[in-house]
């Protein structure tokens, strides 16, 4: 897959790519398209093209659930940490392994309070997931991404985003007007970018600062 990013310096552009694509620096190749060195009076600008080695995130693969019980000390500790955070918030819950993939551990949270645990647009689930990932890094597993889910929220959200991406793409092609989508986390933005990446006359780009940026979908004409 090919993406384009820019920043005020080469490092900034590469950091932006790593964050947006949710990859480590060694997970993609960088080609510099344009590089203007900044001065005191002028901001620098570096445009890069990023090539990722494709690992298509497939929803189907996740259905191979496997054993819900922890199989090693690492899994047991991350499950325990997740459960105790939620109990600390004052909600009872059960946690189990949802899926295991290379460098990924999915955890399912079952609770009668699922709606508050997920939160508005998954805000609370995202926060719990951030902490679970920091904790997993503390256990020496920086390479493993922990994904928390409840009531299949992530999969449902993923499907909804793919639909949103196609619909927005159609609208942009029809009206030739660009559309700015609502703020999304890196994982969600990546779904939009990836879905529209293959469509030649549509371009996507993130705007804004911080964790929750917005994707702008623009028409770029026949290639």
């Amino acid at each position: 897959m090919v993406y384009e990013f820019e920043g005020r310096s080469e490092k900034e552009a590469i950091d932006a790519a790593a964050e947006e694509l949710d990859l480590e620096r060694d997970g993609f190749d960088v080609e510099i398209l344009e590089s203007q060195v900044g001065s005191i009076f002028k901001k620098g600008k570096v445009r890069i093209r990023v090539h990722t080695r494709d690992v298509a995130p497939s929803v189907a693969r996740r259905e191979v659930a496997g054993n819900p019980l922890p199989e090693d000390d690492f899994e047991a500790k991350v499950l325990e940490f997740t459960k105790r955070m939620i109990e600390g918030m004052g909600y009872t819950c059960e946690v189990a392994v949802l899926f295991r993939e290379e460098k990924k551990l999915g955890i399912r949270i079952d609770s009668e309070h699922a709606s508050i645990i997920i939160g508005k647009k998954g805000k609370n689930l995202d926060a719990l997931q951030v902490l679970a990932n920091v904790y997993s890094g503390r256990l020496g597993r920086e390479d493993t991404r922990v994904i928390l889910d409840s009531e299949n929220y992530r999969i449902r959200r993923e499907e909804a985003l793919v639909r949103l991406a196609y619909e927005t793409g159609e609208q942009v092609r029809r009206t030739r007007q660009s559309v700015l989508l609502e703020p999304m986390n890196p994982f969600e933005r990546r779904i939009i970018h990836t879905t529209l990446n293959d469509i030649v006359d549509i371009e996507t780009k993130s705007e804004g600062e911080g964790l929750y940026k917005q994707v702008r979908v623009t028409f770029r004409g026949k290639a």
Binding site: Y91, G119, K123, D126, A127, L128, V130, L131, V134, L211
Partner: peptide, 19 residues
């Protein structure tokens, strides 16, 4: 955390806690 990411996550789950 970087850019206050961890502090922000803690604040988010605090605001969602039952108390």
């Amino acid at each position: 955390g970087k850019h206050g990411r961890i502090a922000k996550a803690m604040r988010t789950i605090l605001s969602a806690s039952s108390g």
